[in-house]
Design a protein around this nucleic acid. Structure first.
Length: 730
DNA sequence: AGCACGCCGACT
DNA sequence: GTCGGCGTGCTC
C-alpha cells in the first residue's frame, strides 16, 4: 500500500461489466463522485470504455496497480435492488456469468444519458402588428395546447413553418424547452371496459383481487381460445395501473401483432410500449429510458422485455405461457416464463400465466396448489365453438400423390365459396420430407446425420433440418446417374400449397413458413393481412397456431396431425396436443358463424387425437401427468442439458466425451443420462446436447457444476452452455 | 464480448 | 521480405 493510499482512503466498489466475468470487477471511486449499488457507470476496460453497474457485496482484493477509476456516473435511474437480485438469481440458476446476464439489462447504450429536451415555442399573448388569415389560424391552433414544436404547430394550423417564424419574430411566440415526448401515451384504466359475462367477471375479479392484495403469487389463467382470456387479464392490468404500478405483458415474439396492440388500445385508449427485435434502435432506447424513469406504464414485449429496468413493476402477465419460444436457447439459456415467476417472487408482486393449453409443469404447479388456478369455462358465444372431427386417413385416403382428403377438399371449396377463409396446418417445412430415385431406389440423406434431406422447391435446395446442411436440388441421381427420375415422397407445406393452387386456381392462397424470405417483420404483416381478409386459403406450419385473431377463418384442416407423435421426445404428446388445440382454436372466433375443424390422422384412436376431437383438455392433462409418473419421468424439473458447441463436429464430440468421462469418474456426479442428442449445426457451429437429470438429493445445478468443473477446460472454439429445465420456484 | 498479441501461409 | 489468417488470453 503506497503512502498516498494510506493518507487518502480510496473508495473501491464492485462493478458488474457486460462480459462473461464470473464476478464484478473492482473500481476506484474518484474523490467527489457519488455512487451507490445500482448506479450505472462508465468504466475503463482494457482499451475501451464500457457501461457497468455498481454491484452489491464486498470487492475483490485487487492489485493496486490494476485498479482504475470509474470514468463517470450516468445521469440515469439506478438498477434497483430487486433487479440486482434478479440478475444474480438468473445467473446462479442458469449457471451463466452474472456479467452476461446484466448485459441483457443494459442493451440500450444511448439510453443511459437523459433524453434531449425539445426546442419548442409557447404563445406570449402578444398580437402581431399585422394580422393575416394564416396568422389567425396559427394563433387559434396554438391555444389548444400550452406549448408546441415549431413544425408541429405549423402542421396543426395548416400553414408553412415560415408563418410561425414570422410570428416568433413579431414576439407572439417565445422559445421554450420541452421535456422529451413520451414513448407512448399513458393508458387510461377506465377507457374501454369490456362487457364481461359472469364467468369472465368472476375470473377478472379473482385476478384483480390478487393484484389488489399485492405480494407475490402466481396464477394460471386457463381458458380455450375465444374465452376472453385477454379481456380478463386486462382487468388485472387495470387494477395494477390503478395502484400506480408498472405492468409487463410477455408474449411470444410472433404473437406481438397489430391485432394485439389494437385490442390493448381499444381497452386502454393508448397502445402499450412494444419491445421486440423489430423495434427500431432509437425507439428501443427511448422505451428503455422511460421504463427506467417509470414514465412508461405498460410494456408488451417478447422474452427479452423481462430484463427491462422497471422502477415500480407490479404485475407480469405471461400470455401463451406454454409457448416454447419463451425458452432462449443461445448465450444465456433461460425460460422467460419461469424467470417471470422469479421476478415476481423477488419483487413481491403477482404473476399471471395465461394459456388455452398450459404446459404440463404449470398444470402440475397449479394442481399442487403452488399456483392459483382461474378457469374460463367457455367461449363468448357458445355457438362459435368449432365443430371438430377426425378424418381417418386409412378409411378415406386422398388420391395417390395428394394429401388433402376428399372430405377436407370439399369443405375448403364450400368455405371459400361462402367468402370465408380456410386454414391448412401442416407442421413440416418445405415440399417433401424425402426424395428418392425411381430407378435405383437411392434416398437422399444428410452426410452428417441419419436423416433424409428435405426438398425445398422454393429455394431449389435439399436441406437437412437437423444440421442445416444443404445442396442444390439435383436433376440426376448421384447413384445411377439417371436424369429426371427423382420422386418426392410425402407432404410439406409447399406441396400442400401447390395442391391448393391446382384445385383452387382462382383462390388467393398464402403460404406461411418460418423459412420464407422476409423474416419476422414480413410474417407479422402477412398475419395482419390475413386477419383483414386478404386471403382465402392459408397454408402454414406451426407458426399459424400462435395467438392470432382471424375472424373470417371458419375452417381449419390439420394435415398429418399425428406427425409429431412419432419421435422419441418425452414432450411429444404434450406438444402435439398444444399445437392441434391452438390451431383448431383459430376457427370460429366470430360469434354466430358456424365453423369446423377437420383433423386428418392415421391413428384416430390415439389419446391425443381423442382428446383433441372431444375438446376435453382436462382429461388429456390428467392422463399425461399420470403417464409421466408411471414412466418414472418427473413431470417437470430436475432435468437439464449440457450443450457443447465448437467449430468442428470432432471438437464438440471430444469435449462431450470428456464431460461424460468426468461424470463417470466422479462418484458425486450422478444423473448423466444415456441420451445424447445428435449433433446440430447452428450458425456454423456444431452442437452436442447431453441430457442430465438430478437425483432427489440436491438441486440439479450442483451436478452440472461438478461435472463441468471436473472436465478438462474447453480448448479452441469449444464452448459449454447449460440449459436447465423448468422447476418449481417456491 | 471485444481487442491485442502471436505465430504460420500468399503477396503488394 | 511483409500482410493477415484466427487460436489464446485478458480485461478491475
Amino acid at each position: 500500500m503506497s503512502q498516498t493510499g494510506q493518507l487518502f482512503e480510496t473508495r473501491v466498489v464492485p462493478v458488474l461489466v457486460p462480459l462473461p466475468a464470473e464476478r464484478p470487477y473492482s473500481y476506484a471511486v474518484p474523490d467527489g463522485m457519488e455512487v451507490a449499488p445500482g448506479s450505472i457507470v462508465q468504466v475503463p476496460l482494457g482499451p475501451r470504455q464500457v457501461a457497468g453497474v455498481v454491484w452489491d457485496g464486498a470487492t475483490d482484493r485487487v492489485d493496486a496497480r490494476k485498479l482504475r477509476p470509474i470514468t463517470r456516473v450516468f445521469d440515469c435511474p439506478p438498477l434497483d435492488a430487486t433487479m440486482r437480485r434478479f440478475v444474480d438469481w438468473v445467473a446462479d440458476y442458469t449457471l451463466s456469468p452474472p456479467g452476461l446476464v446484466v448485459r441483457m439489462a443494459l442493451r440500450a447504450p444511448a439510453a443511459f444519458d437523459p433524453e434531449a429536451w425539445i426546442e419548442g415555442i409557447e404563445a406570449t399573448g402578444a398580437l402581431p402588428d399585422r394580422m393575416t388569415g394564416a396568422r389567425e389560424r396559427v394563433l387559434a391552433a396554438a391555444s389548444e395546447a400550452p406549448a408546441w414544436s415549431r413544425s408541429g404547430l405549423a402542421h396543426a394550423a395548416g400553414v408553412t413553418p415560415s408563418v410561425v417564424d414570422g410570428l416568433i419574430r413579431q414576439g407572439s411566440f417565445r422559445g421554450v424547452r420541452l421535456p422529451p415526448p413520451p414513448a407512448v401515451a399513458a393508458p387510461d384504466k377506465g377507457y374501454g371496459r369490456a362487457e364481461l359475462n359472469a364467468d369472465q367477471r368472476a375470473g377478472a375479479d379473482a385476478l384483480s383481487e390478487t393484484v389488489a392484495k399485492g405480494g407475490f403469487s402466481t396464477t394460471l389463467l386457463e381458458g380455450v381460445t375465444g374465452s376472453g382470456k385477454t379481456e380478463v387479464y386486462f382487468e388485472a392490468v387495470a387494477r395494477a395501473l390503478d395502484a400506480g404500478r408498472q405492468v409487463l405483458i410477455l408474449l411470444p415474439e410472433i404473437a406481438l401483432t397489430q391485432s394485439f396492440i389494437d385490442r390493448f388500445h381499444a381497452r386502454f385508449g393508448a397502445p402499450p410500449a412494444e419491445w421486440h427485435s423489430d423495434v427500431a434502435p432509437r425507439q428501443r432506447e427511448k422505451i428503455w429510458r422511460q421504463v427506467a424513469e417509470g414514465r412508461v406504464k405498460v410494456v408488451a414485449g417478447a422474452r427479452s422485455a423481462l430484463f427491462l429496468p422497471f422502477q415500480n413493476l407490479g404485475l407480469i402477465v405471461v400470455d401463451e405461457e406454454h409457448d416454447p419460444a419463451y425458452k432462449q436457447e443461445e448465450r444465456t439459456f433461460y425460460h422467460a416464463r419461469d424467470m417471470a415467476v422469479v421476478r415476481g417472487s423477488i419483487g413481491k408482486f403477482p404473476v399471471i400465466l395465461a394459456s388455452a393449453t398450459p404446459s404440463v409443469e404449470t398444470r402440475v404447479n397449479a394442481a399442487a396448489g403452488r399456483y392459483g388456478h382461474v378457469r374460463l369455462a367457455g367461449r363468448f358465444a357458445e355457438a362459435a365453438m368449432p365443430d371438430l372431427s377426425l378424418i381417418d386417413m386409412r378409411a378415406a385416403p386422398p388420391p395417390r400423390g395428394r394429401f388433402v382428403s376428399p372430405v377436407l377438399g370439399k369443405a375448403i371449396a364450400e368455405t371459400i365459396q361462402r367468402g370465408e377463409q380456410a386454414l391448412l396446418f401442416l407442421n413440416r417445412r418445405g415440399y417433401a420430407p424425402l426424395t428418392l430415385c425411381r430407378v435405383c431406389g437411392h434416398r437422399f440423406q444428410c452426410p452428417d446425420c441419419s436423416t433424409w434431406l428435405v426438398d425445398h422447391r422454393l429455394r431449389g435446395q435439399l436441406q437437412c433440418h437437423h444440421c442445416g446442411f444443404a445442396v442444390p436440388r439435383p436433376e440426376a441421381c448421384p447413384e445411377c446417374g439417371t436424369l429426371d427420375h427423382l420422386v418426392a415422397c410425402g407432404p410439406g407445406v409447399e406441396r400442400i400449397a401447390e395442391e391448393m393452387l391446382t384445385d383452387f386456381p382462382e383462390a388467393r392462397t398464402i403460404l406461411l413458413s418460418s423459412d420464407l424470405p422476409g423474416g419476422a417483420r414480413r410474417l407479422r404483416r402477412e398475419l395482419d393481412a390475413i386477419a383483414d381478409g386478404e386471403a382465402d386459403i392459408v397454408i402454414g406450419t406451426q407458426l399459424v397456431a400462435k395467438g392470432h385473431h382471424f375472424p373470417m377463418m371458419t375452417l381449419v384442416g390439420a394435415i398429418d396431425a399425428d406427425l409429431g407423435l412419432a419421435n422419441g421426445d418425452p414432450r411429444a404428446a404434450e406438444r402435439t396436443f398444444q399445437l392441434l388445440h391452438q390451431v383448431t382454436g383459430r376457427a370460429g372466433r366470430s360469434g354466430g358463424r358456424s365453423s369446423r375443424g377437420l383433423i386428418q390422422t392415421f391413428q384416430p384412436e390415439h389419446p391425443v387425437m381423442q382428446a383433441i376431437a372431444s375438446g376435453d383438455a382436462t382429461r388429456f392433462y390428467e392422463r399425461e401427468i399420470a403417464e409421466r409418473e408411471r414412466s418414472g419421468l418427473p413431470p417437470f424439473g430436475r432435468l437439464a442439458s449440457v450443450i457443447v458447441s465448437a467449430n468442428t463436429r470432432k471438437e464438440a464430440e471430444e469435449h462431450a466425451r470428456a464431460l461424460r468421462r468426468a461424470a463417470a469418474e466422479d462418484g458425486d456426479i450422478e444423473g448423466l443420462g444415456p441420451a445424447e442428442a445428435p449433433v446440430a449445426v447452428l450458425r456454423g457451429r456444431h452442437r452436442f446436447r447431453l441430457l442430465v437429470h438430478a437425483t432427489r438429493r440436491s438441486p440439479i445445478q450442483a451436478f452440472l457444476r461438478a461435472m463441468v468443473a471436473a472436465a478438462p477446460r474447453p480448448r479452441g472454439s469449444v464452448q459449454v452452455q447449460i440449459d436447465v429445465d423448468p422447476q418449481s420456484f417456491l
